[in-house]
Write a protein that binds this DNA or RNA. Structure first.
Length: 610
DNA sequence: AGCACGCCGACT
DNA sequence: GTCGGCGTGCTC
């Protein structure tokens, strides 16, 4: 009996995004799912590596079948569940299976493979519970130990599942979070079941961990791509800060951890837990429709003072800082932007000063003029009106540092930003000025956390300005001491009302309800298409409206060479295949395609779309 | 992506 | 006649 193998090629090309049938020669005794094989491919019969995604005794291919040349790896590098997930993700994000395969299957390391024996008898045990738990957990914002509360929750949950011989996948937004989780695991005495995927490891260590994840249950910890790990008998997925930028894959098909986790949860019927101090709009939606259960620990939180004035530091705040520093305790001030000036205006005509490329000019940490977009530095060209003098519109963190060094000569004034990030400082009379997301840890916590630019952060003209601001505030507030005080500058109305009790979920829920009224994401789905060819983009738009009619509603785009359109979640299964077909048809016919580039870049549910 | 096939114009 | 232009289509 002849055996036929179904082979997938790890290529992003849409034309190759299908199964190819190959004859399995007699000298290959056994061939299993997920093994890599070398096959002849294309008119020149060049050897390509493919992955086996099935075997059969017949083929529906009408031509003559070629034979597999060789088995490349006897150790399978892709599980059935992983492949099912890849298929679902490709369909959800309009990507190809091939590009996902090449992202998910690690580069082979033959020497590492030799130290692992694959057990063909290995099979996944019980298949999760019939009633899986799906939760959104907001940990207490007040810390009770030296590591963050989420890491304690994650470690305790993971322990419950691994003692039941079920795997756990943990997806974190940042490498620093891995260290925090390691501490929490160590406190529970968990060591040998933890497999960490990190750039701090050697490539061969990560590969060995992957082989481990292929055939034994464990706790698998990493950044966003850990969501695709094999993890047999998966019991639980833990995702921290699903709304963080780094939880989005920056290359095609631009998947994000949250949606992949949701797909995987439904495919493998495992439990799923999202956690953050402040929720993403998508998580709020999932709670609102009853898909996630909201669990929140509000047992303890710092005191809050809200100033309505637009002064960054009003008199009361200033004297509180002075008093705190005198008592040898640390104060944190969050400033929205880096540098000496965030924007410049002409003294004569008041126009915003812009670079040749059209973006705004600011003054950086070295007092140099710099473009926000093209990063060009140097002399400031005169304004259109001929005037050369400028005034600064808003000062940044560097200016704040300079001023506070003069004001508080006794204090240890520290500047931390993404450019020069300080992770941890020693307790003492520290006055820390940090840009959002770069706040250092201090043991015992800060006596004051001042969110000095709260007003301007939420005022940014972006759909997700509030969502991002809330998370950045919450992550700073978490670094306050148990008796610490939080000060917001310039908040009014409903937001001030929510923040006086640090009701992050409620603040986001209000934001979500507004979006719902306007029919904006995430209450509806959004697709973004960009292209260098505006004529093809226009063609796509016209044909889309023609093919899909009124259910498609194009949304105005701020970005050039980009179109957006919204549709309902329930319409996705009708719209996506049509859309995909259109994109591929126009792409293959267009003469405007640049070599090595796609004609259209398609992004589904891009959080930064509008 | 490559590469071959194929159907028209310019050329030794 | 036939060499080569790149539009079209396929890769088991």
């Amino acid at each position: 009996m002849t055996l036929i193998a179904k082979v997938r090629i790890a290529s992003p090309l849409p034309a190759l995004d299908k199964e190819f049938d190959y004859l399995v020669p007699d000298n290959i005794a056994e061939l299993g799912f997920g093994q890599l094989v070398r096959v002849p491919f294309g008119p020149d019969k060049k050897q390509k590596v493919g992955v086996v995604v099935g075997t059969s005794d017949h083929s529906s291919f009408k031509g003559s079948l070629a034979e597999i040349i060789d088995v490349d790896s006897h150790f399978p590098l892709l599980s059935f569940n992983q492949f099912a997930l890849i298929e679902a993700v490709a369909s959800r994000f309009m990507g190809s299976i091939g590009e996902l395969l090449s992202a998910v299957i690690p580069k082979r390391m033959v020497r590492v493979e030799k130290t692992h024996l694959y057990d063909p008898e290995f099979s996944e045990g019980h298949k999760g519970k019939p009633e899986p738990k799906r939760e959104y957990v907001q940990p207490s914002i007040t810390r009770k130990q030296s590591y963050p509360n989420w890491s304690k929750i994650f470690a305790e949950k993971a322990r419950d599942y691994i003692t039941d011989n079920r795997s756990v996948i943990v997806s974190l937004p940042d490498y620093r979070d891995i260290d925090n989780l390691k501490i929490a695991f160590a406190k529970l005495g968990l060591v040998e079941d933890i497999h960490i995927f990190s750039s701090a490891n050697s490539a061969s260590q990560n590969y060995a961990n992957y082989l481990q994840a292929m055939q034994s249950t464990g706790i698998f910890v990493g950044l966003r791509s850990s969501i695709f790990l094999p993890a047999p008998n998966l019991g639980l997925i833990l995702v921290l800060d699903d709304g963080d930028e780094s939880q989005i894959e920056p290359s095609s098909p631009y998947w994000n951890t949250r949606d992949v986790a949701l797909l995987r949860q439904s495919l493998e019927n495992c439990d799923l837990l999202f956690s953050s101090l402040s929720p993403s709009a998508e998580v709020v939606r999932l709670v609102e429709i009853g898909y996630l259960k909201h669990v929140s620990d509000q047992s303890q939180r710092p005191a809050v003072r809200i100033t309505e004035s637009l002064n960054r530091l009003d008199e009361a705040t200033y004297s509180a800082i002075a008093k705190s520093l005198k008592q040898n305790s640390s104060v944190l001030i969050q400033i929205a932007n880096l540098g000496f000036a965030t924007a410049l205006a002409c003294v004569k005509c008041s126009d915003l000063r812009k670079c040749g490329c059209g973006a705004r000019i600011w003054i950086d940490t070295k007092k140099k003029f710099r473009c926000r977009s093209c990063k060009a530095t140097g002399d400031l060209p005169p304004c259109q009106c001929g005037e050369t003098r400028v005034r600064t519109l808003r000062t940044g963190s560097s200016a704040m540092v300079e001023w506070l060094k003069k004001a508080f000569t006794e204090a240890n004034v520290i500047h931390s930003s993404a450019e020069e990030r300080i992770t941890r400082i020693e307790p003492g009379p520290n006055l820390v000025i940090a840009t959002p997301g770069s706040e250092p840890e201090v043991s015992g916590g800060y006596t004051y956390v001042v969110l000095a630019d709260a007003y301007s952060m939420v005022g940014a003209p972006r759909l997700r300005a509030l969502e991002k601001s809330l998370l950045l505030w919450a992550n700073a507030i978490e670094k306050a001491s148990e008796t610490g005080v939080v000060i917001f500058s310039g908040l009014t109305d409903q937001l001030a009302e929510s923040m006086k009790d640090l009701q992050f979920f409620e603040a986001m829920r209000q934001d979500f309800l507004e979006r719902e009224e306007l029919g904006l994401p995430p209450t509806r789905r959004i697709a973004s298409v960009s292209s260098n060819s505006s004529s093809d983009l226009e063609l796509l738009k016209v044909e889309l409206i023609q093919a899909l009619g009124p259910s498609i509603s194009p949304v105005a785009s701020a970005e050039p060479k980009t179109i957006h359109f919204c549709f309902n979640y329930s319409e996705a299964e009708n719209i996506t295949p049509l859309f995909r077909e259109l994109v591929s048809r126009i792409s293959s016919k267009s003469k405007n395609r640049l070599p090595g580039q796609r004609l259209f870049r398609v992004r589904m549910d891009d959080p930064n779309a509008i």
